[in-house]
Each structure stands twice: as C-alpha cells, then as structure tokens.
Design a protein around this nucleic acid. Structure first.
Length: 587
RNA sequence: GGGGUCGUAGUUCAGCUGGUUAGAACGCCGCCCUGUCACGGCGGAGGCCGCGGGUUCGAGUCCCGUCGACCCCGCCA
C-alpha cells in the first residue's frame, strides 16, 4: 500500500534549493533518480521537472526502513531541513549541489517497475523502445528540454501575435474533404450514412473565410493532418502556426514574420539579422538546385554551357546543342579528394540519378577519363568557374532543371561530408515568385504548386491561358538551413479570377461548386484582399533544439509507418462501431 | 510502391573464414559498507541470437522469405 500525500505540499522543486535556503524546512516531491546506500547513511537523488536534489537519510532513523525499500523511479515525498554541504562534498555538477536535505519524513507515494531502459543515464536507447515507453522517455533531460522549449516557443508566438492585434481563432477539426493535394484522413458520419468528414490538411479555407468575416488578423496554433508517407521532418499530424491578414501584401507578411523569428530565436540566445535574404524561385533553382537552399555553405551551381557549345567533347556539345545545359560545382580544396573518394563520389552521383559526373582537377594534367574533354575546354571551364589549383571541378550535363536539381543534391551531400553545414548557424531565406502551376504529364493537366487559392502575379494574368507555366504566383516560402519552415501566399480575393484559375486547372464549375462551393459563395460577399502564411512549428522547434527529427520535439510522435507504438494506434474496432458508422471492411 | 542501414540478455553492443558451454558494460536481485554523488566490495539470476523456411555433419554467422525500427526516393495542393 503506497503512502498518501496527506498534508505534504511541495515547497520547492528539486532544482530550486540554494545555499540561501539553509535551515529551511522544505517538502520535495519527485522520482527517485538514484540511490546510494552506504550502509549507515543513504543518499537519495530525487528528481522532478525542475532538477535533482540530494536527500540524506541516516542510521537509527526510523526512516531508514523506508529508504532501504526505494528503487529507481519510485515516487516519493520528503520533508526535511536544508543543510549546507561540507566543502569537500559540494557537487558542482548539480544546480542544487551546495546543499542537501536531511530527511525528517519520507513517504513512498508509489512504487515503479524496473524501467526498460535507464533514465538516470543519458544512455542511447533504440527509438522503438523509447516510443513504446514514451512516458519514461519524457522524464529524461532531452525531451524535458525539448518539450519545455516548445512550450516557450508557442508562448512567445502567442504573445507576439496578441501584441500585434491578432485574434487566435479555432477552426473545425471535422471538416469537408477537398481531395486536391494530400490524402485526407476521413471520419465516417454516424448520422449521415455513407458520408464523411475529413480532418484538415490545413485550415486554409476557414482562415480565408475568417478574413471575409472581418477577423482582420487571425492566427492559430493548428493541428493539421495529411495521410502521406512519413519522413524525419514529416508526421501524419503536425502543428502549423497558421496566420492570415486582411489587406496584406507579400511585404506585409515578411515584415510580420521576420521579427517573430527574431523573438523566437532569442529563446536560444541567437540574434537574427534582418531583413532576411530573398531569392526568386528560378534563381534558387539555378544557383542551388533547390527551392529550399541551405545557405550555410557556398558551393553554388554554375553554368558551363557556353564553354562546351563549341567544345571538342561531343557528349557535352551535343547536349548543349539540343537545348540542355552543362552545369557544375567548384569544390574548394577538393583537390585533396583521393582517387578512391572520387570514384565513390561518382558512384554516389549515379545512385542519385546522374547519367554521369565528370571531375577534373585544375592542379594537375587531365586524367585519362577527362582527356576527351580537351585541354582547351577544361582550361576554359576552370576559368569560368574561377577554380584554383586546390579545387575540384564537378560537371554534369542534361536538361537544365534536372541537372540543377541533381547538382543541388550533390551539393548537400558534399557539404555534409565536408562538414560545411555549421549546426550553430542559422541562415534564413525567403524564396519568392514560385510558379503558380506545374504540369503533370501523367494526366496531362496543370496543378497548383501551392494551392488553387494562390494569387497569380498581376503582371502574369494574361499568360494564364497562353503560357501557364510562366505564370508566377505571389507565393513565398520561409527557408531555414535548407528546411522549409513556412509557406504562404497572397490569395485570390476576386471571384472572377478564382473561376479563371479553376478553369485553368481543368476544374469544371460544377466540380468547383461541389468541392468549394461554400467558399466560392463567400468570396462574392465583399472579400478583402488578404494573404498569409503557415509556419511548421515542429520543424521550427526541432531546429531551435538542434534536433534532426521532429519526433524529438513532439510528445507523442508516430513511427515511420504511422504507428503509435505506445497507444497501439491504429487498431481494429468493435464490429458494432463499424455497423453504427455504416462501414464494412474488405476481407 | 522502390532503395538502403539495422535487429544477439531489461538496455547498449561484441561475437573473426560456419565449429565445444553465445560474451562485455550498464541495469536487476542478495549480502556488506557512515559522506556518497556514474559510490564501492563480494556473490547471483538473466538469451526462441526478431520470426519462418532452406543450404550444411553442424547456422547467431551463409541463402530465401517475412515482420519491425530508422534514413532516402516516389508521395507531401
């Protein structure tokens, strides 16, 4: 039978006591972190969210019997007197290490089974075990820190938006399926046989309708759901800081979000320099081979097409003649790469999808493999790329965009390998002027790159019908260290333009009405110009915490197979539940 | 859907080219210990080597399949 709390009320957390508290009669409550039983005296480290404090239980004390029973992770209440430790016994590793509590009263509030992994050590434990026993992992310093940081981040965000005149408004979790975009999670309706709610992929339409409803400035820390495959930075349910502003231009959003980032990064003691850099999508792609470039390293992609237009190297010449491109990266100090490392790199490139990767070292005569290129062309290429004797030139050829994207991957690979991505640097970037549409050859139609409510750039409206691929959107992503941490746009507020975009997407009037009718109708009742952004809270906090997976900043994440190892979700359900929901499963 | 890494004690790992009784550390259990703080000392328990099949005189080790965790591609308006 465990003891009850009785009249014991916490006076301090386990991280609070200092030399100035000596003599105080205190009550501490927490878990047994570690027991050091020396026979005549027993030291107990007890732990709560605040830290660790050493308790002392001495012989001849009636309490010794209780102390001897204690094991790791038992829950205890201790009342005692704070005493100063002698100089030799001060523990500088503990915040409370100058003092200890001489126990006068000790209650065993609960026993605990031996944990499947040690909490007191910062030992490495495989992730499935951590997830299965998430409540234990949550007691360990890493998650305590990350979850606390997440709280401070959301508080900072709330304070910021409140001070900026925003209202936090909740939007429905049970909503309507809008099958464009990611796969929906569906919720069957009991009351309406054969009909379904969908969980929101984002509160997109609701926040726009809030603008129509005069909310003017809205934000929400919103759970979103997407039934797609997972990654280190993607979970089926995740949290967006969702923002929408009436009468906003893109500039309004940038100037709103930049100081927010500044405030948030102050939480980890970092100054963010403003304004942030901006890069048009097309430039990001050609210079970095990515729409979310990591700017912590240089390694820009350069174009060498002109060098090879007249070259004696047939392969490159032909690709350029056919409208392709020869592009490459100059790797500083790359001359140090051994032949074996270069072979491995070429191999790696093949796996990434490169048809071929040519390397050449300015510092030495051309190896047999690059002789075909010709000395003159090589010299011209080195000059074009300003490659010095210590450098390494890497070249690939093909369709311009494809080659850039592959080189973008290679760039990151090289940067990681050579340790060029300083984890302690934070490079923000706005990527702007995304294309409005992208063509999918499989079904021969255009799709919205962002979503169908994104405003086309006013200068490009007339190309909607004639040259859809060239239409820019007033859309922007916030990129941090190569991670997309936010994305947004100015929306279409004119029903006629919205209809035109739907037509371009091949969505008939009836179809549009069936899917978004409520929204299109609302659009006709005096919609103010508006726009906004959604920030990926999980990714943001992961970066703040220095974690490479968002699972480390979520209290209860799912595995890569979308399973909750602790709760055991998903699971089968009672046949009666299915009947009530008018559902039958196959097989 | 595809590719890769990994799966051995509660945990983290070692286990060679296939060869006696599968090891270590930490944890766990018992005894001893009055100033420890990763306490220490002595003793002990603990293994479906993920699962199924195959090759072999013999499989933790080789092969095939399968399941699970992680990473990547596809997917993620």
């Amino acid at each position: 039978m465990p003891d009850q709390l009785g009249d014991l009320a916490r006076t301090h957390t386990c991280g609070a006591l200092r030399a100035s508290d000596v003599g105080a009669d205190v009550v501490l409550l927490g878990w047994v972190h570690r027991v050091r039983d020396l026979g005549g005296v027993t030291f107990l480290d007890i732990r709560d969210r605040g830290g660790i404090t050493q308790l002392v239980v001495r012989e001849n004390d009636a309490l010794m019997g209780v102390a001897k029973r204690l094991r790791s992770e038992f829950v205890v209440a201790a009342r005692g007197i704070v005493q100063r430790r002698s100089e030799e016994t001060v523990n500088s590793k503990l915040e409370t290490g100058e003092v200890e509590v001489l126990v006068r009263e000790l209650r065993l509030l609960n026993e605990a089974k031996t944990p499947p992994f040690q909490l007191a050590e910062d030992a490495s434990v495989s992730e499935d075990v951590r997830l299965r026993y998430r409540y234990l992992d949550l007691r360990r310093p890493r998650l305590q820190h990350n979850i606390g940081l997440r709280h401070r981040t959301t508080m900072e965000i709330r304070k910021y938006f409140d001070a900026s005149g925003f209202w936090e408004i909740e939007t429905p979790i049970l909503t309507k399926s809008t099958p464009e975009g990611a796969r929906d999670y569906l919720v069957p309706s009991r009351v309406h046989p054969g009909e379904f709610y969908a969980l929101p992929q984002s509160p997109q339409l609701f926040k726009q309708i809030l603008m129509i409803g005069g909310a003017d400035r809205y934000f929400q820390i919103a759970k979103c759901f997407r039934d797609e495959d997972l990654r280190a930075d993607r979970q089926p349910e995740f949290t967006q800081v969702d923002v929408e502003v009436s009468f906003a231009r893109a500039e309004t959003i940038f100037q709103l979000i930049e100081p927010l980032m500044q405030r948030v990064f102050k939480l980890i003691g970092r100054e963010v320099a403003l304004p942030m850099r901006r890069l048009a999508y097309a430039e990001a792609l050609s210079r970095y081979g990515s729409d979310k470039p990591d700017l912590r390293c240089g390694l820009e992609i350069q174009d060498f097409s002109e060098v090879f237009r007249e070259s004696e190297f047939r392969v490159f010449r032909q690709i350029v003649a056919e409208g392709g491109a020869v592009r490459g990266i100059v790797l500083p100090k790359g001359n140090a790469y051994s032949r074996g490392q270069l072979d491995a790199l070429v191999d790696q490139a093949r796996q990434m999808g490169f048809a071929g990767l040519v390397w050449a070292r300015p510092g030495e005569p051309p190896s047999s493999s690059v002789k075909a290129i010709g000395e003159a062309s090589l010299r011209a290429a080195f000059a074009r790329g300003s490659a010095s004797r210590d450098d390494l030139l890497l070249l690939a050829a093909g369709g311009a965009e494809g080659v850039s994207k592959l080189l973008g991957q290679l760039r990151l690979h090289l940067a990681k390998k050579d340790g060029l991505l300083d984890p302690d640097r934070f490079e923000f970037l706005w990527v702007t002027d995304f294309p409005l549409l992208e063509y999918h050859a499989e079904d021969g139609r255009w799709y919205s790159m962002h979503h169908p409510f994104t405003s086309p750039h006013p200068d490009d409206w007339d190309k909607l019908e004639t040259d859809p691929g060239a239409v820019r959107a007033v859309a922007y992503d916030l990129v941090l260290n190569g991670s997309e941490v936010g994305g947004g746009s100015i929306r279409i507020h004119d029903a006629a333009l919205q209809a035109r975009v739907f037509r371009r997407l091949g969505i008939s009037e009836e179809e549009a009405k069936a899917r978004f009718g409520f929204f299109l109708e609302a659009l006709e009742y005096g919609t103010p110009p508006h726009g906004g952004i959604a920030l990926g809270l999980d990714r943001m906090v992961a970066i703040l915490a220095g974690e490479s997976s968002i699972r480390e900043v979520m209290a209860f994440p799912k595995t890569a197979n979308a399973i909750d190892l602790m709760a055991g979700a998903p699971s089968g359900v009672d046949p009666r539940q299915l009947r009530e929901l008018h559902l039958k499963t196959q097989n």
